[in-house]
Structures are given as structure tokens and as C-alpha cells.
């Protein structure tokens, strides 16, 4: 643990602390460290390095053998105490790689699905804000199969925000889109970055997205964290990664 602690030098500002160990047939995840409670932290690495698995652990979608996760003072999961919040009780927003909108519901009903269930159903200002932030007011009454890939991803980002999360998790939200759609969505992500007060964990394998969106960087390889810190201090890893 001590050698890793050095690599992931946690500063006192970091309010999100984690430790996960997950063994699978061909893969193991073993991470221990902290994230900043502010801004966008990119989790970066080539495919198969465990970055999405880390995000799924944080959301409670995986069951690691050893797990600890804490945001500020509240512990979401601690396998040594056998405490574990199920996913639906964690105050997160999650954006999946492909938009995963419910096909049987309109865009608006998709937004309201989570909003209703987190006790925000009266809070229409908040919903309007999210709709405005992602520029989807014209899409609300369409079913997902009537939306383009980029529009679907914007609706699903809005849906994740409509539950008023304390932590936003984004798993390669642009990777399923072509260049044109990426360029269409990036400005909205930059707006999120500027306007959101909550911390965002953003999984990506694209150095360009990291440079454009992230404040902090966590670099992963083979299920381990090999560097973490402010983007200004860790940026050299983005280019190193081409060697992988």
C-alpha cells in the first residue's frame, strides 16, 4: 500500500477516497487512492486497463472482494464493516458509453424516470435548468429511436443530472460517436464543467478529451493506478500512453 500511496499522493483537499480489489479470471483491479471533490477528474488509460471497472465499482455495479468508498464524511461501501449501499441508494449520476435511454419512454419521460425517484418531482426549475444546459428542449417529446446518436447522449447526460447527484460518473460518453457528433457534444460537456458544482469522474482513452475537459488526471494501466494528480503535473502521461 505504501508504494502506491506515493504514486497516488493524496492531498488533504481530496474528499473522495477509495480502495478496490477485484479478481476475475483474466483480470484484476487493485486500486487505492483519492479523487478531488471538485472539478473534472479524468480516468485515463488504454482499453482493458480497468478504468470502466473502477467506475462500475464506484457505482456499486460490481462487487469487488475488497471495497472501500467514501465521499466527504459518508461511507458508501466498506467491505471490512460489511456496509454497502446498493446502486439505487447511491447519490450518483451515471452516463453509460452508449446512451442506454429506455426505448419505451420519450426523452422527457426518461428524464423524469430518475427525477421522480429521487424526491425531486416537485423541482421543475432544476429539470428546466438541466434541459437548458444540454439544449434538448426541442427533443423532449420524441422517443429515443427518433433521436440521433448525439442527441441521445445529450438526453442521457441530462437524465443523469436530473437526479441531483453528488457525484457524476461518465464512462466514455463520446466513444460511441463519430467525430461530427463528438464535436457537437463537447461544447455541452465544457459547459457542464463550468457550471456544475459537483465532482465529475470522466473515463476516457482520448488524450484530446482529457486536455479539453479535465482538471485532474488519474492514469491507469493493467488494473492499477500509475499516476494521479493535477493535469498540469501529470500531462506527460497522456503522451506516454501512446507507448502502451
Amino acid at each position: 500500500m505504501s508504494e502506491r500511496a506515493e504514486a497516488t499522493a493524496s492531498t488533504e483537499k481530496d474528499s473522495i477516497k477509495f480502495h478496490f480489489q477485484l479478481q476475475r479470471d483474466e483480470f484484476s483491479l487493485d486500486v487505492d487512492g483519492s479523487f478531488s471533490g471538485r472539478g473534472v477528474t479524468a480516468i485515463f488509460g488504454h482499453s482493458g486497463c480497468g478504468k470502466s471497472t473502477l467506475l462500475r465499482c464506484i457505482a456499486g455495479l460490481e462487487k469487488p472482494q475488497i471495497a472501500f468508498f467514501q465521499v466527504d464524511q459518508s461511507v458508501w461501501e466498506d467491505s471490512s464493516q460489511s456496509t454497502r449501499l446498493p446502486t439505487h441508494q447511491r447519490p450518483i449520476g451515471y452516463v453509460f458509453q452508449e446512451a442506454s435511454l429506455f426505448p419505451h419512454l420519450s426523452a422527457l419521460k426518461n428524464l423524469q424516470y430518475g427525477q421522480k425517484r429521487c424526491g425531486q418531482s416537485q423541482n421543475n426549475d432544476q429539470l428546466e435548468q438541466v434541459i437548458d444546459l444540454l439544449g434538448i428542449e426541442n427533443l423532449l417529446h420524441r422517443k429515443p429511436d427518433r433521436l440521433s446518436g448525439g442527441e441521445r447522449q445529450r438526453v442521457s447526460i441530462a437524465r443523469a443530472l436530473a437526479v441531483c447527484p453528488q457525484l457524476l460518473l461518465m464512462d466514455e460518453p463520446l466513444s460511441a460517436l463519430d467525430m461530427k457528433r463528438k464535436r457537437e457534444i463537447l461544447p455541452f460537456l465544457e459547459r457542464l464543467h463550468q457550471e456544475l458544482a459537483i465532482p465529475v469522474l470522466y473515463v476516457t482513452h482520448s488524450p484530446a478529451e482529457v486536455r479539453r475537459l479535465a482538471d485532474n488526471l488519474v492514469v491507469m494501466d493493467s488494473g492499477k493506478i500509475i499516476a494521479s494528480g493535477k493535469l498540469t503535473e501529470t500531462e506527460q502521461y497522456l503522451d506516454d500512453s501512446h507507448l502502451f
Binding site: L61, P86, H88, G93, Y113, G114, R117
Partner: peptide, 9 residues
């Protein structure tokens, strides 16, 4: 999984 992240039991 999506439903669970949207607070559905």
C-alpha cells in the same frame, strides 16, 4: 443497471 443508477430498486 441504468434504472439502478436512476434510483430504482
Amino acid at each position: 443497471e441504468v434504472a439502478a443508477t436512476l434510483r430504482a430498486s
